[in-house]
Amino acid sequence: MKGPLAKTAILLVGMYVFLKFILPLFTAPLPASLIFLYLALTFASAMIFYTMSGGSLDEFMGPVGRFLTGSGQAGIAGTARILVFVLFPLLVGWQTYTRLAPSDLPPAENRTIHPAPPGEFVGLANPYPRTPENIMMGKGLYAAFCSPCHGANFDGKGPAAVGFNPPPANFSDPGTIAQLQESYLFWRIKKGGVGLPVEAMPWKSAMPRWEVELPDEWIWKIIMGEYDGAGQSPRTWEEEE
């Protein structure tokens, strides 16, 4: 197993083991498509290296050529050769079928959950002081208007949440309001689902356009009550700098 072909094979297996099993020990696991891309690059590099001179190319391709032509083969190698020749066309056939077979899955939905807000809703500060009275009032308003969907526990599991697609946001999840500024929430509550841009699929959202029913003051206080109740803090400008 000293030929360049064997070396390439060992290199590819080593690369795969490294990317798939060793790297995730230190960082997030790589998606399969990225691992494949790295392996393809490794293979391409090996190909370039071995095709640089005639000698190395012969050395590299020799075993492949001998395997494919079956010259001087017997036993296991001969059987393997027949197997490869039978399996490859079948694999191509199977791939053709899976690509063309009609799918029963509905269209994929690449919905943006937190799209960019319109300019006028960027960087607004809550004009009401964070006093216990204001927070209390905000929580009361939340209970009346928001909790049916977003839940009394701010977890997105209100009694009316179950029928909607997409489901109402879970404010206790660190991936929702903790990642957003108060002015973002102000936009989302005021304009509701119908105020979303196209990438967020506004036609699916059940979030009411609260500006037609609630004064701005109530909305700001609801935001305060929401953060306090969910045990989260709004993202601020200072943190981003």
Binding site: K191, G193, V194, G195, L196, P197, V198, M201, P202, W203, K204, A206
Partner: peptide, 14 residues
């Protein structure tokens, strides 16, 4: 054209 599920109500950006 996409329509809102609530009776095709007006959407603000599309």
């Amino acid at each position: 054209k996409m329509a809102h599920f609530a009776h095709g109500q007006e959407m603000l950006q599309i």
